[in-house]
Write a protein that binds this DNA or RNA. Sequence first.
DNA 1: CATGAATGAGTTTTCATTCAT
DNA 2: AATGAATGAAAACTCATTCAT
Lengths: 198, 198, 198, 198
Amino acid sequence: MTDSKRYRGSDKRRQLMAAAAQVLHRQGVERTTIADIANAAEVPVGNVYYYFKTKDALVQAALAEHAGHLERLTGELDKLPGPRERLRALVGGWIDQREVAARYGCPTGTLAVELDKREEGGMDLEAGRVIRLLLDWAEGQFRELGCPEPGDLALTFVGAYQGMSLLANALRDPEIMVREGNRLLTWLDSLPGAQELR
Amino acid sequence: MTDSKRYRGSDKRRQLMAAAAQVLHRQGVERTTIADIANAAEVPVGNVYYYFKTKDALVQAALAEHAGHLERLTGELDKLPGPRERLRALVGGWIDQREVAARYGCPTGTLAVELDKREEGGMDLEAGRVIRLLLDWAEGQFRELGCPEPGDLALTFVGAYQGMSLLANALRDPEIMVREGNRLLTWLDSLPGAQELR
Amino acid sequence: MTDSKRYRGSDKRRQLMAAAAQVLHRQGVERTTIADIANAAEVPVGNVYYYFKTKDALVQAALAEHAGHLERLTGELDKLPGPRERLRALVGGWIDQREVAARYGCPTGTLAVELDKREEGGMDLEAGRVIRLLLDWAEGQFRELGCPEPGDLALTFVGAYQGMSLLANALRDPEIMVREGNRLLTWLDSLPGAQELR
Amino acid sequence: MTDSKRYRGSDKRRQLMAAAAQVLHRQGVERTTIADIANAAEVPVGNVYYYFKTKDALVQAALAEHAGHLERLTGELDKLPGPRERLRALVGGWIDQREVAARYGCPTGTLAVELDKREEGGMDLEAGRVIRLLLDWAEGQFRELGCPEPGDLALTFVGAYQGMSLLANALRDPEIMVREGNRLLTWLDSLPGAQELR
DNA sequence: CATGAATGAGTTTTCATTCAT
DNA sequence: AATGAATGAAAACTCATTCAT
């Protein structure tokens, strides 16, 4: 009973987070109303405020959702034997997501752009923090790969992802994800560090 | 009088375009009110509508402004003797603009992200068109350089720019523009096509 | 033309101020909505914000209205030959207003009570300022009358007014204004300072 | 258990009344939410409604609390030998409370002002009733003192208290309580009725 | 063309009150 | 009784756009 209550409660909160993540990604922060999120989560509008005090809090929740997704993803990737394979698998995922990228862009990247303009709430850097999660993970892989300047490589790598997502989105062309994704794969293969026997 | 009025008129129009370009870049489309632009242009609010029927029209004007700026820029670059120099000069400009990029991102890129979410007015692709101007110009340079697949190279090149701008902005770190800019310079130098004696 | 415009403009502003003063007095700050004031002033709701940026600004305008009224009143009283007559006339006015006082209290006093609870906007003391106008005027009269400690007398005098208004209002009994008003008149007559030949 | 619950229950009720009295005094009726009172009373929000059906009921409870406090106070004062001493002691208490008065005004007086604006629930006069308790007690003292028109004196006396509290509050000046309080003490001493040998 | 003013639809947020357990 | 959660009806405020002159 207590448990089912707790569960239902958390459940709604989770529903709202998931809905926020999705709707905010698709419609953008400014074009999304609380009502939009409430509808998507099938929750009455007034109730949203029981879980999230402000719209900003919902945005942050969406960001946390993306961070969680990213952590789950890298967690999965970490199970792969070598860093090169992990990075390759990540790129593979990006290519697989090409339709979404072409339609809505990278969730975190577009959020970063929008939050940058939102002076209030000091959330300017929140999206950057999520992006840094990816940067740090990538840096770790490059380091493990034995590359010099793994930080710079990570920057190039993640930058390429953000760039190709933005272009695919701006030009509404998923093929860009494929072309640039494949280039990244080739690039990964060319990296010298590799003593791994593959 | 008629003439001076005409002149003042187009003057106002130009002021409005310039103001729109700047303010929209800094504040974002959704956070910018017509009044903001009118103030920045020192034009009375009610008057704006004689020059631009809707806010969307103003956004488009800002986009045109950015396109114009880009064309002027590439026009200047075209005066340089070789394509590699031109591309290098372009990258140099990006690095020079690092503070602006870190604070507000690439004007066209961020606009593209925002317009993507703005269903109305079918301006989704307008920003893409401006980006394509750059893509096309870059492709021309890579072709002139004798590179194979100049279109792909242009994509990589412009993608790198968008990516590094986004990261610099999201992390509020202008140094990213320097690091990635220098990488691009090295990359440009390494391109095989170069028969130019330098 | 320009003038009629100006006039109409100011006119609406004035209408709003007057409406605000009246409605806020009757309904209290918290129970009054912008729509209430807009209706009373026969102005569309959205338009109110053209003249007053926030509800607080409207409250302040109402306070200014009361201050204006008070200044006009003391201005009139100042035309009377002696200070005692002026003070007596003021008390007479209070008695005349007994029905309003019993129904809604003293406009400034009740506003002071409400604003004290409104942390935001730092308007805590705005009502106090209006009250001090009356205090200062009364002090002047007592001084002119040759009384010692005219400041203390003013405090007693205005305090009596606030107290009797509050009681009349709380008990909904206009007669309290009469009884206490008459007592004040007697008290004024008894003040020693009077060398005036009456 | 039942007993301890019952105890806890009425305990909670009392806690809520005390919290309501205090919080409503400090924040005002309209600015105070049920949650505020619940928090102050350390009672879960949803639980409040077992003790008080509506917010109005809580307000009434607060008034009852103030009435109780007043009755306890006059009960204490009644132990003093003579009416003049009792009235003097009361004034002394007012002076002692000067800081609270300057910050939040007289609990009952401010409540009266607010309730006057609250059409619903017909509580307009509830605060008046509490004030009348004080009036009646004071009238009794003046009568015992042998004064003519003890009702009018009570009105003057309590009116002075309400007036000085309001002024002290509006001007945020506790000294007003001292000055006017001392004046009241002198006035009390000057009352003729006193055959008491002091 | 110019311009201050007008307008109304939309958005976030608050809260008293009720409900399910 | 107890309690976290639910709900909807306001209310303040914003702003693109239109209007009257």
